[in-house]
Write a protein that binds this DNA or RNA. Structure first.
Length: 112
DNA sequence: GTAATGACCTTGG
DNA sequence: ACCAAGGCCATTA
């Protein structure tokens, strides 16, 4: 499907996220050049686990660094557990030092 | 084809 | 800082 091509771009981008770093839906959306909006990024993530493409969706959070999509994982603890496993700190379902662990996908495009 | 929903973001009060 | 409303595009019923 051609439409999945956009999702594929998102998945590739998420896979490029370095370990211990996180990004936001809006950053990905903006990085796509507006071909897709942040809402669809989250939708794509929900389909990501269904596709089982090895996509670290736990590294994608909303603009405030809150784990909004943890309920979509196998268990609500999965997302936080994975993030903590990568050295990140979670508190009140939000990423601590979010501005420090924030990674902008544009770096990959600039490094292409 | 229309209406409703969604792992969101921005703006205004 | 928090709450409410509008906008964005795609998927689903």
């Amino acid at each position: 499907m051609e439409k999945l091509d956009k999702y594929n771009a998102i998945y590739e981008m998420v896979k490029m996220i370095p370990k211990g770093k996180v990004t936001t839906y809006g950053a990905l959306s903006e990085c796509m050049g507006g071909i897709i909006n942040a809402r669809m990024v989250g939708f794509a993530m929900s389909q990501s686990h269904y596709l089982d493409a090895g996509i670290p969706a736990h590294r994608v959070v909303n603009r405030i660094g809150e784990l909004t999509g943890r309920m979509h994982f196998s268990t609500p603890e999965t997302m936080q557990n994975l993030l903590e496993s990568e050295g990140l700190k979670i508190e009140n379902n939000k990423i601590v030092n979010f501005d420090k662990v924030f990674w902008h996908p544009k770096e990959i495009i600039n490094n292409l």
